[in-house]
Simulated scan of single mutants.
Amino acid sequence: MSKLKIAIQKSGRLNQDSLQILKDCGISIDNGKDQLKASASNFPLEVFYLRNGDIPQYLRDGVVDCAIIGENVLVEKGQDLNFTQRLGFSKCKVSVAVTKSTEYTNLKDLEGKRIATSYPNTVQQFLDKNNVDAKLHIINGSVEIAPNIGLADAIVDIVSSGSTLFKNGLKEVEVLLKSEAVLAVSPLISDENQALLNKIEFRMQSVLKGKNSKYVLLNAPNDRLEEIITLLPGMKSPTVLPLAEKGWSSVHTVIDKNQFWEIIDELKDKGAEGILVCPIEKMVL
């Protein structure tokens, strides 16, 4: 029986988040310490633990069928590869940073300057697009130290919280791109394995939809019921059940987690009471 081969980062946060979403999809990985390859016990899947920067070539060659990888890596090393799903974790930016003492107004301030980076392709494309001529120094790791030792005037690197920049006396001045984990696919994937990937994608979508939604229950006076329902965007329409107390109904619905606080005051103004908000583990559409 064919097995779907998926690559994930060998170590680091992306590794942990990737394994977690597979677990949330009901896939159990027999993950021994320091293994480079592991199999799922309840799904035809093999996991390959690879260096992040090597994954695009493995996809290109068909060694793996798919991968959970940072979008920033695809932009740098795999622009010929496609991804089918944004996964909502490992979010970061690829940004330009300079020393805190540097006066910076706009991109033209980088003209003729030295930029240290681990993302030369991404940076060069950005500079070309904005008609800026600068000299790139390619550094693998510890890019932040370059301005402080006189190697470069600026850096381009991944920024998450910004704490690393702060510790090294740097400030973020431009954002080249925003990135998150994505599900990338090999152009050589077989039809059989594409069918397996479709099943995993469906599960991932259910997990992500659940994480981004909340289940809301509230009590509504019947004479304001229609007004309250119009405030509740749901999957299709809310469930309305009569309460034991005459003249009241219980309303159940699902809303985007980011919308709730926008409408809570309106719900209360319309007479809604006993509002209960619950997390959703998975949502199958």
Results as ranks from 00 to 15, higher is better:
142 S>Q: 10
143 V>D: 00
144 E>M: 01
145 I>P: 02
145 I>N: 06
152 A>V: 05
152 A>D: 02
158 I>G: 03
159 V>G: 07
160 S>F: 12
160 S>R: 13
161 S>R: 14
162 G>N: 09
164 T>P: 07
167 K>R: 10
169 G>K: 03
169 G>L: 00
170 L>V: 12
170 L>D: 04
172 E>Q: 12
172 E>V: 02
173 V>L: 04
174 E>R: 10
175 V>F: 06
176 L>F: 07
177 L>V: 13
177 L>I: 14
178 K>F: 15
178 K>W: 12
178 K>C: 12
180 E>R: 03
183 L>G: 01
185 V>I: 14
185 V>G: 02
186 S>E: 14
187 P>Y: 04
188 L>W: 12
188 L>K: 13
189 I>P: 01
191 D>W: 13
191 D>Q: 11
191 D>E: 12
191 D>F: 15
193 N>W: 05
193 N>R: 08
193 N>Q: 12
193 N>G: 04
194 Q>A: 07
195 A>G: 07
195 A>Q: 09
196 L>Q: 04
197 L>Y: 09
198 N>G: 15
199 K>D: 11
200 I>H: 00
200 I>R: 00
200 I>M: 00
200 I>W: 01
201 E>M: 14
201 E>Y: 08
201 E>N: 13
201 E>L: 13
202 F>R: 15
203 R>T: 03
205 Q>N: 09
205 Q>I: 00
205 Q>S: 05
206 S>L: 10
206 S>V: 07
207 V>Q: 08
210 G>Y: 10
210 G>N: 12
211 K>A: 10
213 S>V: 10
214 K>G: 00
215 Y>H: 14
217 L>Y: 12
219 N>W: 07
221 P>W: 12
222 N>D: 13
225 L>H: 08
227 E>Q: 11
227 E>Y: 03
231 L>Y: 09
232 L>R: 05
233 P>S: 14
233 P>T: 11
234 G>H: 04
236 K>R: 13
240 V>L: 12
240 V>Q: 11
241 L>K: 08
241 L>M: 08
242 P>W: 09
243 L>H: 14
244 A>G: 13
244 A>R: 15
244 A>T: 15
245 E>A: 11
245 E>N: 11
245 E>S: 13
